[in-house]
Amino acid sequence: MIDTTTQRPTRTIRATVNGAPVELVIEPRDLLLHVLRDRLGLYGVKSSCDVQVCGACTVLVDGAPVSSCTTLALEIDGKRVETIEGMATGNDLHPIQQAFVDKAAIQCGFCTPGMVLTTKALLTDIPRPTRAEIEAYLGGNLCRCTGYWNILDAVEDAAERMAGEGAR
């Protein structure tokens, strides 16, 4: 397909985003970050470094954390995408979100969505991580405000909460 305004090629993709089916006409070069934000209004996906270093744009694709700034939207065709907007159930925060609130692991909040989603991937893979394992997973998520200590606490607290109530 060719877009009649831009004269550029397009593709149609189908995916599940935060549990809901979506169908989108995109350009093959479109980044997942921009499609999620500008087409689907998911502004919790944050844009910062553009080079897959900072983790602010992290989303889960079929459960795995990816940097949406360096992922083509084409790559989610047929897949399941989860953003921060899909974490809470109504007004009930996910235990990871609640742990970040309770442990004061949030300051400016710009890294928070990516931190929470990477933590979800971590705790799915390793329900009771060691500090070294936390550092390995969250080493790809920068935070300039907190100095990380409270984030470390929040991840450990979330692991305990989730072990207590069974994985969600």
């Binding site: 921060i84 907007e85 809470a88 925060l93 979100q97 970040f100 949030i106 909040g109 969505p113």
Partner: peptide, 8 residues
């Protein structure tokens, strides 16, 4: 502002 930030 914690809840608004942790929910995006």
């Amino acid at each position: 502002d914690a809840v608004s930030k942790v929910t995006g």
